[in-house]
Design a protein around this nucleic acid. Structure first.
Lengths: 220, 220
DNA sequence: TATGCAATCTACTCATGAGTAGGAAAATTG
DNA sequence: CAATTTTCCTACTCATGAGTAGATTGCATA
């Protein structure tokens, strides 16, 4: 007599019949794959130079399937940059709980910031100007970016207050740091010899120490 | 009796009849105006989002006139970035003759570099990716950029050699500096309160000194 | 005065690419 | 099995924008 209440522990992986949850997962994975393919192409060719037909072709699907999963091109871009900014927000959250001097915490944040800027969605954030989005979406984009900038400025201000960062114009320091660490989004080649980790720590070190030699570390 | 050999000294400014040179000048000015209008629009809206019809309309001319003066859209963009890179090369040239330590010279160059990145053509260089140009033009663009990067690296290496710059990975230092100073091309508003001069010197100061406080300058 | 060149325009062509209509095949559910 | 939902496709429409053809106007020079 076949069981009417099938044991949830026994999962026949090879079964062609998927449960509701499994199918939802499946759907999510497809959605994810489409988004990933889109952001990669946007990064490689630029948003305007990328057609959704191209994105679709790279996945062996048709354009309407992209609309089915993600909506129109503007929504696709918005989701890409929102993801990237989400990763940055998460980095900020993780550092919020960290301890150490203001400079220590800032450095920790900058390392994460730099690394996000070298992954698919982070790169997209850097490469996308507000001009690319329709006004409504652009406003949201700016809001999220402003929030990250706010976190950065707060950290700098805290470091100045506790003396671990030398005094200066907080806004200008923030722009300088962000600019330096955004730039790899433009030149870094994931297939190249330098890992994002190396690049990030190298740059943060340079920014912390400055160009001029420090008294404490005589070079010869 | 009217003079058969008119006095070259007497120039009737209000004359509707222009000499050959005057008309050539006229032409150059028009060409210049078209190029300037184009680069401004590229910077404001992005290259792909700018139509040559829009550029033409902003000057009260028609699209074929742009083709008459500048050629196709790709050539327009190439000329814009070539101008910007030319300004950078000129900056490098000016610094080559300067004296002082490696750091002094580097700082002088960085100041000029930053300022170029806030003018029309410099901004265009920063905002334009190779992907925007047809392969042939992209190759030329890359060559010119590499040349500037070479100058920057040479200066850093000289500073390290003479001890005015602390030792480190030259390539990474160059990218860090360039990134920080390129970024204003994205956010600087010429109509805003901060002048390019102020921004440039502020950023160069931050990059030179680094975030961490220096022993010599106790803050309190 | 005729001929040519310089500077522009109007009015196209043509390709590309966003977005949609409508349907079909599979899976799911009643 | 019938009805419904999910997933995906073919085959459009339609706007935009690059680039061109060919005419026009007017000054310039032989």
């Amino acid at each position: 007599m076949p069981s009417q209440t099938p044991d949830r522990e026994i999962k026949d992986r090879a079964s062609p019949f998927r449960s509701k949850e499994e199918r939802a997962l499946d759907r999510d994975q497809k959605r994810e794959a489409v988004l990933r393919a889109a952001v990669r192409m946007f990064n490689a060719r630029g948003f305007h130079a990328t057609s959704l037909d191209d994105v679709a072709a790279s996945l062996n699907i048709s354009k309407p399937t992209i609309y089915y999963y993600l909506g129109n091109k503007d929504q696709v871009l918005l989701e890409c940059v929102t993801r990237g900014l989400g990763e940055l927000a998460e980095a900020a959250e993780r550092v919020r709980e960290a301890e150490g001097s203001g400079l220590d915490r800032l450095r920790a944040f900058l390392l994460l910031y730099a690394k996000v800027n070298m992954d698919d969605f982070g790169r997209c954030v850097v490469r996308t100007g507000d001009e690319y989005l329709v006004p409504k979406n652009a406003a949201q984009f700016r809001t999220l970016k402003r929030r990250i900038d706010g976190v950065l400025r707060t950290m700098i201000a805290e470091g100045i207050r506790d003396g671990s960062i030398s005094d200066g114009d907080v806004k200008m320091i923030a722009f300088t740091l962000a600019g330096a660490l955004n730039w790899p989004a433009r030149w870094h080649d994931p297939a190249g010899p330098d890992s994002p980790d190396q690049i990030a720590s190298s740059m943060v070190e340079i920014l912390t120490a400055g160009l001029a030699p420090r008294a404490g570390r005589a070079s010869d």
